[in-house]
């Protein structure tokens, strides 16, 4: 679907032998992967495979115990989440993490926080340059609101929105920071068919029109196989397969991971 697929786009994100333990549980062990500029990269796998842990490490909430994570040539393995956000990675959460008491508009404006010039006293300096900057940010946020068709909900507290809309607002907030890498943790989970189709369209639009590199976790196989340029399959903390959707689909290890066992084993 995109001409960058599989071709030699530069590497956006590189995981190199990444491992993470929680107490005695090895959540991720020795996973390596490359996400290329401009592609949609999906991570799939059964529950507990370590997918979200990978995302959490990429966004800095956990730090890998072994291996390294590289974003645009910078090692971000031990970098704090707030710093990573300012480097150009933004994300959504599996369980929606909007600011529930704040309006949709405020949520999106906060998405631009990393792009805003800061300074303790800048808060009180509303006039002059600060105001001009504010207006610019507001314009970009309005574009996103327009794009995601949230116009009527601007002033609604995010917590009061229906589930599907909250997911959409969260996508909007992630986009507001103009990320160069967008991490989506199950963007379509719990949605009905119509909401899913909407979300798929938004994700594709973001990828194609804005050229944003996207790494996502998703359980809906139909969606993953349709939109991804590359798919990484994980099971029990390990990478068990990697390739284009077609390559992955035919991989016996993938089938085994999903169905629990293969026929010949059952016989044996």
């Amino acid at each position: 679907m995109t001409d960058t697929a599989g071709s030699g786009g530069s590497v956006k994100l590189k995981l190199d032998g990444v491992a993470k333990n929680f107490g005695g549980v090895r959540a991720v062990s020795g996973v390596s992967a490359e996400v290329k500029e401009g592609e949609i990269f999906s991570i799939i796998g059964p529950n507990g495979a370590g997918k979200t842990t990978i995302l959490n490490m990429t966004s800095g909430f956990y730090h890998p115990d072994e291996g390294s994570i590289n974003f645009e040539g910078t090692d971000i393995s031990q970098t704090l989440p707030s710093k990573i956000a300012s480097l150009g990675i933004s994300r959504t959460f599996q369980n929606i993490a909007l600011f529930r008491g704040l309006t949709v508009l405020e949520n999106l404006m906060l998405g631009r926080h990393v792009l805003m010039k800061t300074g303790v006293l800048a808060a009180f300096a509303y006039w002059g340059p600060a105001q001009r900057e504010e207006v610019e940010h507001r314009e970009r946020v309005e574009e996103i609101i327009d794009f995601l068709k949230l116009t009527d909900l601007r002033k609604t507290p995010a917590g009061a929105l229906a589930y599907g809309l909250q997911k959409r607002v969260e996508l909007g907030r992630a986009l507001a920071s103009e990320p160069r890498l967008l991490l989506l943790d199950e963007p379509m989970a719990g949605m009905n068919q119509e909401e899913k189709e909407d979300m798929v369209r938004y994700v594709l639009d973001v990828n194609q029109e804005w050229g944003t590199t996207i790494a996502l976790i998703e359980h809906d196989m139909g969606v993953v196989m349709d939109i991804s340029d590359h798919v990484m399959v994980m099971d029990m903390g390990e990478r068990i397969s990697f390739g284009t959707p077609d390559e992955v689909r035919g991989d016996p290890r993938v089938i085994e991971a999903y169905l629990g066992t293969t026929d010949h084993k059952e016989v044996a």
Binding site: A85, S86, S90, L110, H113
Partner: peptide
């Protein structure tokens, strides 16, 4: 509202 989400927004 949420410490964790704020961090993800780049808020210190």
């Amino acid at each position: 509202d949420s410490h964790m989400t704020s961090m993800a927004m780049g808020i210190n």
